[in-house]
Write a protein that binds this DNA or RNA. Structure first.
Lengths: 193, 193
DNA sequence: AGCAAATAGTGACCATGGTCAATTTAAAAG
DNA sequence: CTTTTAAATTGACCATGGTCACTATTTGCT
């Protein structure tokens, strides 16, 4: 027989998340230790793993929540008229995703859902992202020879590429958006003869 | 005063790599344990870390070597005339990179060099890959409105995307190459009106 | 209320990657 | 050949994520 989740459960979970968020705000994602989280939340270590499969599951949730926040912002924007506007729209999100190498690694690892039924927070945001960009591209002045869905996947692929290159010392910080703009210009507005 | 590397050093390193390769061949990359490697190589644990910064550095080397092998093959091929040929050429490499999720994660994490001077084996192979594809695209019948270098970066971005989606249960195994073909058709031969 | 079943929480314990002061070995100097 | 010095090796030790048998609590039933 199945029972409803107890209030206690929600509280504990909330305390764990709150503790983790505080610690992250203080020292960043990479420095987060499960030990510190449970200490701050006032629960035993085992409890943590009763709520999260592993440390990454917590990260998935924390980071996914942040990404969702950025997507909320993005959704309020009008459809971009050109590549520059598109890049400007998603720049804050990209900045967050590359705020730490560790964060970017986690985002990458979770961007594709591991299993169909087990779509995590970050994987969901990628779906949302695709949705938003598809919508933008559907009624735009960008190329029309391929579907908006495919176009959006391409935007995602190039965004990831631009972020990945951001971590090479060769390519300096502010080049990330320039690089993306160059990619998207070629992707969304090919000038083939 | 600096001294030349001792023969002993090379031998030890070779034994470590050989032991690791055997173990990987037997149980795969993810199951590799440092403990087992040093046991098989007949050295102490500390010795391992005197030769490799961490376990990932070993993985970088092992996987990088394999990728180089695939690139050797690829380089013997004639420049592909169309997208299908291009995809067919790089398919074996993609298959290897996605043979384990763990392998793909490592490849991703190392594909961009961490520091300019610290370009690891995998990062080098990505440079080589770009080189090869650029060469192919330079004198081809694909689009010419953007540089071969940029085109090659796009091929890389789409390859990564296709491989990443490969791990979603939604997209079945043999769809990886189809997906890539679709991307590259749109990327390399845009039919904009 | 009192009991039974399901759920939540605990903390000692384990697995494994990684460190480092001490030791051994090889090469150069005298 | 001895001494000196740099390099290589060692293994006890640590850090940290993760497990699990056991205890505690809540919920539903009679």
């Amino acid at each position: 027989m199945k029972r409803a989740v107890q209030k206690r459960t929600l509280e504990t979970r909330a305390r764990l998340v709150a503790a983790a968020e505080t610690l992250v705000a203080d020292k960043g994602y990479e420095a987060l230790r499960v030990e510190e989280v449970v200490l701050k939340a006032g629960v035993a270590k085992g409890t943590f793993f009763a709520h999260f499969r592993d440390k990454e599951a917590l990260m998935d949730q924390l980071i996914g929540a942040r990404i969702d926040g950025f997507l909320d912002e993005i959704e309020t924007l009008p459809p971009p008229r050109d590549v520059a506007a598109l890049v400007a729209a998603i720049e804050p999100l990209m900045r967050f995703m590359t705020c730490e190498r560790y964060v970017f690694d986690i985002v990458l690892r979770h961007s594709g859902a591991a299993l169909t039924e087990e779509i995590g927070p970050i994987a969901s945001t990628f779906g949302r992202y695709d949705q938003v960009v598809s919508g933008w591209l559907a009624g735009s002045s960008f190329r029309r020879d391929v579907s908006p869905g495919l176009l959006a996947e391409g935007v995602q692929a190039f965004s990831v590429q631009a972020m990945a290159l951001h971590f090479c010392a060769l390519h300096s910080d502010r080049n990330m958006t320039h690089r993306l703009a160059e990619y998207l210009e070629a992707w969304l507005m090919p000038k083939t003869t």
